[in-house]
């Protein structure tokens, strides 16, 4: 079943278009990865799904309902959560408060969800009362993903979740993303570590200049010589 779908998106941030007809799709239970060269509009495409880009034409649907021009706080309510690449925690709030903010629109008891995040990222439990701004980059990424999980989303959008992390944390974050996916959360992520990401993806998109260039299963894209040479560094 298709959850999130973008059809022929054109748009940008005012000024010229960055997206030139990109189309994406996330089915239930999938891990989908967007790769491509710098400036291909990967992050912009993801933001467009989340109402953060001026979409000039094209449409975005979630479970067949149009969400193209909904504001992010409305989209969150439908079950799509987004983790930006940078500035993705509230630095002066504690870890626990960061998670609480992720659950802001929930009026029920979400303590079980907090425990689930702590199980997924044990270091956060120890540091629950510490200001998020004082954590290491990897731990901050855990807080950021944990915050987005608080609403128990159907689709999780991750913008370069491993950017700037040490190899140890990169492996850990990818591992956790798979665990999250195993609990039934569909994942769409933009990644620089393209090989690693594609190796665990169900499907992948290669974007160039704001448009689709290739779309295939993860293994097939990795096996595609042209893709490997041009976009995966040989």
């Amino acid at each position: 079943m298709t959850l999130l779908k973008a059809e022929e998106l054109y748009g940008g941030y005012g000024g010229g278009d960055i997206l030139n007809g990109v189309s994406l799709r996330v089915d239930a239970g999938e891990v989908v990865v967007i790769v491509g060269p710098n400036g291909a509009g990967k992050s912009t495409a993801m933001k467009a799904l989340f109402g953060l880009v001026n979409v000039r034409s094209g449409r975005v649907t979630f479970r067949d309902e149009e969400i193209t021009r909904l504001s992010p706080d409305r989209i969150v309510g439908r079950g799509v959560c987004y983790v930006p690449q940078e500035a993705n925690v509230f630095p002066s709030l504690t870890v626990l408060e960061n998670l609480e903010m992720g659950a802001f629109i929930r009026r029920d008891d979400y303590s079980a969800q907090i425990e689930r995040v702590f199980e997924l990222f044990p270091p956060l439990k120890e540091k629950r009362s510490q200001a998020a701004g004082t954590l290491s980059g990897g731990q901050r990424q855990m807080v950021a993903i944990g915050r987005a999980l608080m609403l128990d989303p159907k689709v999780l959008l991750l913008d370069e979740p491993t950017a700037g992390l040490s190899p140890k944390f990169i492996d850990l974050i990818f591992e956790r993303i798979q665990e999250i996916n195993a609990t039934g959360v569909s994942i769409l992520m933009v990644e620089q570590n393209a090989r690693h990401a594609l190796s665990l993806a169900d499907r992948g998109y290669v974007l160039v200049l704001g448009a689709n260039r290739y779309e295939d299963t993860g293994p097939n894209l990795l096996a595609n010589r042209e893709v490997a040479e041009m976009f995966l560094g040989g």
Binding site: A87, F90, M101, G102
Partner: peptide, 22 residues
């Protein structure tokens, strides 16, 4: 809840919006 949301918005207004804070 709203007190924390105020601090959150002061920290990072964009992320506050992304988190669904009104």
């Amino acid at each position: 809840r709203f007190g924390k949301a105020m601090r959150a918005m002061s920290d990072n207004p964009d992320l506050a919006r992304l988190s669904g804070i009104n």
